[in-house]
Computed example of a mutant assay.
Amino acid sequence: MRTNTEAVEPTVTRSARREQIVQAAIEVLAERGYASTSIAAIASDHLGVSKGVLSYHFDNKAELMGEVVRSVLRSAEEWMTPRIVGAASYHEALHQYIAANTSFLDLHRTEIAALTEILVNAQAIEGVPELFAQSQTAARTALESLFDGGRSVGEFGDTPSVILAMSLRATIDAASERLRTDPDFGLETFARDLMAMFDRAVAPAPRGKAAMA
């Protein structure tokens, strides 16, 4: 339960403090791993404040971990959305989706490391599995709509959208996990090869083969 330690703190200051705590948690998670990340470690070792300051903003570690997940997912959405919605075609939107995802991974390696640490231990954190599952479902649904749209105008072939969406999302998530153990993993090459692979996967069948089918 939160105390009244900072009950009179202005709302803007409280919001800034919460963001500061979340960022500190991200850095500790990335550096030490989930098991060694505690409220006390974040407070005293990283922020130089008392544990009570953190307890005012977050009831426990699980609540703070949930906020870290929300923060990283929100940052990812804010980064990727404008890069995708401006695409001139479905094919370009597919390339932009891959480029935006991989560039976010590359530029936010600390956040991705923290998120991965949480997700590896998600079953032990109340609310986190459901939170991430909702995010994944929304991402796959949006991708299915992209692939459906591309097929409806003849840009894409007949490969089922659900398979394409699941495959693309799973591959990008696997890249996040790869960064956890391989910091030198080449994301530019990965993105280029992934685009080429999906270009082949969504390509319409040649007219002759389509007619014979």
Rank of each mutant, 00 (worst) to 15 (best):
T3F: 09
T189S: 13
E126Y: 06
T181A: 10
A30T: 02
M195V: 14
R74C: 04
L146K: 02
Y90L: 01
S167T: 14
L143D: 04
P206Y: 11
R14A: 15
V162R: 08
V69D: 05
A76N: 07
R74S: 15
D184K: 09
Y90W: 13
A205Y: 06
V128A: 08
R200L: 15
S103P: 00
S176G: 11
T110P: 00
F185S: 01
L168F: 07
V22A: 03
K51G: 10
F190R: 01
D106L: 12
L29M: 05
V162K: 10
Y56L: 01
A165L: 07
A35C: 00
A87F: 03
R192N: 03
V53Y: 10
I26E: 13
A133W: 04
S176C: 12
P206S: 12
A99D: 15
H95A: 08
I84G: 03
T11F: 10
D173Q: 14
E117D: 13
N101Y: 10
G33W: 07
S36I: 00
E144H: 03
T159N: 07
I21R: 06
G33D: 07
L146G: 02
A170W: 02
I84P: 03
K209E: 15
D199F: 08
D193Y: 07
A210W: 06
L179K: 04
Y34E: 13
D106P: 00
G66C: 11
A142Y: 03
S71H: 15
W79T: 02
I125A: 08
M166T: 05
A139D: 09
S167E: 08
G157F: 09
V8A: 13
A100L: 07
E92W: 00
L64R: 02
A165F: 10
T102D: 08
E27P: 00
S44W: 04
P10Q: 06
L94Y: 02
L115T: 01
E63Q: 15
E130F: 10
E78T: 05
F190C: 05
E111S: 15
R109L: 07
A170N: 09
E155Y: 02
S167Y: 02
N4I: 01
Q136I: 03
T102Y: 05
A35N: 08
I163T: 07
L47Q: 10
E63D: 13
T189Y: 06
T159P: 00
L47N: 07
E155T: 01
R109Y: 02
A40E: 15
T102I: 01
A124D: 15
Q20P: 00
S176T: 02
A175H: 04
V72T: 11
G127T: 06
T110N: 07
L64K: 05
T37P: 02
T37A: 08
K61H: 12
K51Y: 11
R109M: 11
S38Q: 06
A93T: 04
I98R: 03
N4A: 07
A16H: 08
H95N: 09
F156G: 01
A25F: 03
D193W: 04
R169K: 06
P204Y: 13
T171M: 14
T159D: 04
A191D: 05
R70M: 08
T171Y: 09
A7R: 14
Y90N: 01
M197S: 12
R151T: 06
E126H: 10
F185V: 01
P129M: 12
